[in-house]
């Protein structure tokens, strides 16, 4: 079994600047931060490298970092400007028992991350969910549609911290 430090060293050596840093400050989980537009390449490497063999994507999570500037609007609500959205990947190697956490952050205004749906097939629906809930666009995803919300939901992305429910949806009152 390899520790996150060792895996970070391997990645840093191979990809250089695309692998940003290893964050061990937070308790419980060490996080390797990577660049959003290098994700596919790094993940192919992680999956196919003999020493690593991360064959299982346990979970792909979208995350609103809520670190932007809060702007007060006229109607009293606030809207977040700037800041980042993140995608967190929990990877595991079923053969070797390694586990790591990757994280990539992308700008809130135009969130774009490369897809990993070709690397792990289960990422397909995970990424659709992240798109549905946070509006993160996964580049090169084969079928990026909403998955849990209605296909014609136009009021934004519900898990963003500054999301506001619409008044009406197809003439039906939404807030009860």
């Amino acid at each position: 079994m390899k520790s996150s430090e060792e895996i970070f060293a391997i990645l840093k050596e191979k990809f250089g600047d695309a692998v940003l840093q290893l964050n061990t400050k937070l308790p419980k989980e060490a996080v390797i931060e990577i660049a959003p537009l290098k994700v596919t390449e790094i993940c192919w490497f992680l999956r196919d490298n003999e020493e690593l063999q991360f064959d299982n994507l346990i979970l792909l999570t979208g995350l609103d970092d809520d670190n932007g500037e809060k702007v007060k609007l006229e109607d009293g609500t606030t809207e977040t400007k700037g800041g980042t959205l993140s995608v967190v990947y929990h990877l595991e190697s079923m053969k070797l028992g390694n586990r790591i956490v990757l994280r990539t952050a992308t700008g809130r205004e135009n969130p774009e991350v490369e897809t990993v749906s070709k690397v792990w097939a289960c990422a397909d629906w995970h990424e659709r969910e992240a798109y549905d809930m946070f509006g993160i666009k996964f580049l090169n995803h084969p079928d990026l549609r909403r998955i849990l919300m209605p296909y014609d939901w136009e009021a934004g992305y519900p898990l963003r911290k500054d999301y506001k429910n619409p008044e009406f949806y197809h003439g039906m009152k939404v807030p009860y």
């Binding site: 937070l26 308790p27 419980k28 989980e29 996080v31 346990i58 979970l59 929990h90 956490v101």
Partner: peptide, 9 residues
């Protein structure tokens, strides 16, 4: 809990 994150299964 203190600031941090965990994945538990």
């Amino acid at each position: 809990p203190v600031e941090g994150q965990i994945y538990s299964r």
